[in-house]
């Protein structure tokens, strides 16, 4: 699957980038980080225009996020839980739902580019929690633009080392998720101890 996605980018360029990034933003597990880094490498090789690539990736990711938000808001909690259950993430979603409004804009912003595995679940949870659509869209667009620019520029800078850079970023993302979980659990643990 990953091979086909990356091969499609090389063959069809920006339309393939748009489709894959949008589908991944809804919650389908696709190698988006590697895809964006490869896009940067293709820009370094002169195959793809970097500005168009950043714009297309930003718009595609935001479109996918809007679908996730709409599913949460208008599809109802049951539909989202069924969807999350099919993807094996029902427990995580229940946990995030309560946090969505509390975390607010920064939670949306950082889940676009720093703790990306949480991104689709934050979309669903924001929709279920009736988080303001305008605020969601603004934070979402800012985060997705930063994420797209960051990963594509890294691909541009390390255009001959795309897999190694994706590997480093993948590990850093999970380390960031670890820090986030440790902070939440630590806060709970020590606030109870007091």
């Amino acid at each position: 699957m990953n091979d086909q996605v990356l091969a499609a980018l090389g063959r069809y360029g920006l339309p393939a980038l748009f489709i894959v990034v949008a589908i991944a933003a809804i919650g389908v597990p696709l190698p988006v980080t590697l895809l964006l880094i490869v896009t940067g490498s293709l820009a370094a090789q002169g195959t793809i225009d970097i500005w168009w690539a950043i714009a297309v990736a930003t718009v595609a990711a935001s479109a996918g996020d809007q679908i996730g938000y709409a599913i949460g808001r208008w599809g109802g909690k049951e539909l989202v839980l069924r969807l999350a259950g099919a993807l094996g993430k029902a427990d995580g979603l229940k946990h995030l739902e309560g946090k969505a409004t509390k975390l607010g804009g920064p939670g949306i912003f950082f889940s676009r580019w720093l703790v990306t595995p949480l991104g689709p679940w934050v979309n669903f949870a924001s929709g279920i929690a009736n988080y303001s659509w305008l605020r969601f869209s603004v934070w979402d667009l800012l985060g997705e633009a930063l994420g797209a620019a960051l990963y594509i520029c890294l691909g541009l800078a390390f255009s001959d080392r795309v897999q190694a850079v994706a590997d480093v970023l993948g590990n850093l993302t999970w380390a960031a998720v670890g820090v986030l979980i440790a902070t939440l659990l630590g806060w709970k643990l020590f606030s109870r101890a007091r």
């Binding site: 490498s41 897999q163 480093v168």
Partner: peptide, 20 residues
């Protein structure tokens, strides 16, 4: 990152391999 060669994968095109 700088010491190792990028492994060739089935999804890569020939110009991509040449570049890396």
């Amino acid at each position: 990152i700088r010491g190792q060669n990028e492994p060739i994968q089935a999804w890569m095109s020939v110009p991509f391999v040449a570049h890396t």
